[in-house]
Simulated assay, not measured.
Amino acid sequence: MIPIVLKELAGLGLHTRILHLNLQSNSQDEQHCHAVRYVWTHRGRRPWGLDTPSYCSRCNSIKSFRGIERINNPDGSFSIQFKCHGPSCTKSVTIPLTAAESRLTQGPRDPYGKWQCHDFQWDQTLLERF
């Protein structure tokens, strides 16, 4: 029953992202902050933990971004490109992934959705999306 529910209710885990902060000590007993980010990923609704655009400003279609592609950039980084499938629309939205996000391997392959975690990197671009 659980796989059926997860497949049919793709938005089940879309309610939140979790950032877990804690203090850790190194070998010199110096404390530093460590953060782990938990992200719900789903192949159609939140690939690589990124929300699929819900509205196309070019063709005015709602929930039309279904073409999702992972792009290998020349510098070794990755980006995700969302393509609109509205009537006669060619709009695409490209979002660069941080190094930590690019390790979220399930992305669009997992039809049921999955909670994944990675070490959080303090990056202004990522904080704006968080």
Results as ranks from 00 to 15, higher is better:
53 P>E: 09
110 D>G: 06
102 S>K: 05
7 K>N: 14
67 G>F: 04
128 E>D: 13
16 T>C: 13
26 N>Y: 02
14 L>S: 11
24 Q>Y: 07
34 H>G: 03
115 W>Q: 13
78 F>S: 01
45 R>M: 05
73 N>A: 03
21 L>T: 10
127 L>P: 10
112 Y>Q: 03
42 H>I: 04
64 S>W: 03
70 R>K: 15
71 I>R: 05
62 I>S: 06
42 H>T: 07
31 Q>Y: 09
119 D>H: 12
102 S>H: 00
114 K>M: 08
96 P>Q: 05
35 A>Q: 12
90 T>S: 14
28 Q>K: 11
5 V>C: 02
104 L>V: 03
109 R>P: 08
129 R>Y: 01
104 L>K: 02
90 T>W: 01
51 D>N: 10
89 C>G: 07
54 S>C: 08
67 G>E: 10
83 K>R: 15
98 T>R: 09
83 K>S: 15
27 S>P: 10
28 Q>N: 08
119 D>P: 07
85 H>V: 06
58 R>M: 12
62 I>D: 14
92 S>F: 03
104 L>E: 01
99 A>M: 09
126 L>M: 05
130 F>R: 08
92 S>G: 08
22 N>T: 14
15 H>I: 13
51 D>R: 13
127 L>G: 11
56 C>H: 02
97 L>V: 00
33 C>R: 07
84 C>V: 02
26 N>I: 00
73 N>Q: 12
68 I>A: 09
9 L>V: 09
116 Q>R: 04
63 K>Y: 13
79 S>T: 09
47 P>W: 01
17 R>V: 05
112 Y>S: 04
65 F>R: 04
59 C>D: 03
106 Q>E: 11
121 Q>Y: 02
96 P>G: 02
107 G>T: 09
122 W>L: 10
96 P>D: 13
66 R>K: 06
12 L>W: 03
92 S>H: 10
84 C>I: 04
7 K>Q: 06
99 A>R: 14
61 S>T: 07
95 I>V: 15
36 V>F: 07
31 Q>V: 06
5 V>G: 04
72 N>Q: 10
9 L>Y: 14
117 C>G: 06
32 H>L: 09
83 K>A: 08
121 Q>I: 13
96 P>E: 00
83 K>P: 01
18 I>V: 15
